[in-house]
Design a protein around this nucleic acid. Structure first.
Lengths: 167, 167
DNA sequence: CCTCGTTTGTTCAAATTTCAAGGATGAGCC
DNA sequence: GGCTCATCCTTGAAATTTGAACAAACGAGG
């Protein structure tokens, strides 16, 4: 029996290679760009900003920690640290969950909402300048499709996966 | 004079919003996925792996620190720390530059090359499974174009930009 | 009620990243 | 040479992220 795969791996073609590198290159630059823009204008990195956005859209601007972590695609550990930091800034507050004594709600404060409202225009502009102003509508449409497909492929569990016996 | 922008910012349309969120979602999942895959199979995060790849393609498998930083799109500070770590692992070695006493070469060691050779198939497979196996050739082509465009828009200086008086 | 296994959120330490600062060298110029 | 400014890379501290370990609370059986 072999310790290594018997077959030569399917390497990327030159074309695929170029595409992949372009992706890595662009996504790196974009994350850096948005992080710097938000750090400068809102005082927090992109991930934290996104947490506030997700909270702002939830009913009563609050979510259970685990739910927030899932919607923002980060680990609970990372979220704990992030919320601690945002709490220090006064953007977020924790509240006990009445139904479940283990549970905590992360609540967007009024002050947090204000920061969001003030920095949102700049952020939208940055995203627009980096992406949408440069792409045709056909390209935008395809980009959406592609990212949808890629995300589905990587999603640990899609909606309903917690009910595997139904599939 | 106004302290705030006079005009309502151009918010994203619903369609743009969906596309943007799909992008953030997918790119987050993808980076996490590759980081975990490489951390498990190669003992380093994706960024470090990429450094080794870039070095492996350079003549004599070596590059000046600044050049490596630029090609990998990271800051020199980050590179210094990263190389220090890779040096501890024995995958990279530093060498003085004869022409410029300030300069340092980062050199990929044989051991580093081996690690790369051993982990490359798994990495390629991960990328292929996440992206290329799921996209039509038309989608792949468009993805390449899009990322090329986005990268150019964010590139601090493109080729020749260090000669601004020529433009 | 009790026990077992799961879920929830936190915490610690280690690793990584960022940012500002700094030492050393190079290059142009008088 | 000496002066000035830019470049090369490193360093240290603070911030962030990761992964493992943990206590508390839940919940299904028995």
């Amino acid at each position: 029996m072999n310790t290594a795969p018997a077959e030569e791996p399917r390497w990327l073609t030159d074309e695929e290679q170029r595409t992949w590198r372009a992706y890595v290159h662009a996504s790196t630059l974009l994350e850096d760009h948005l992080d710097r823009q938000l750090q400068r204008d809102a005082g927090m990195p992109h991930v934290y900003y996104h947490l506030l956005v997700v909270l702002s859209e939830a009913p009563r601007r609050r979510l259970r920690m685990t739910e927030l972590a899932m919607r923002a695609k980060i680990t609970r550990s990372r979220l704990s640290h992030a919320v601690a930091r945002l709490e220090k800034n006064g953007w977020v507050r924790r509240e006990d969950c009445p139904d479940d004594k283990r549970g905590q709600f992360a609540v967007l404060t009024d002050q947090g909402y204000d920061v969001l409202a003030q920095s949102a225009p700049g952020h939208v502009q940055a995203v627009r300048q980096a992406i949408f102003d440069r792409l045709s509508s056909a390209q935008q449409e395809t980009l959406g499709e592609i990212m949808q497909i890629v995300a589905e492929g990587l999603q640990p569990k899609e909606a309903g996966a917690d009910l595997p016996w139904l599939r």
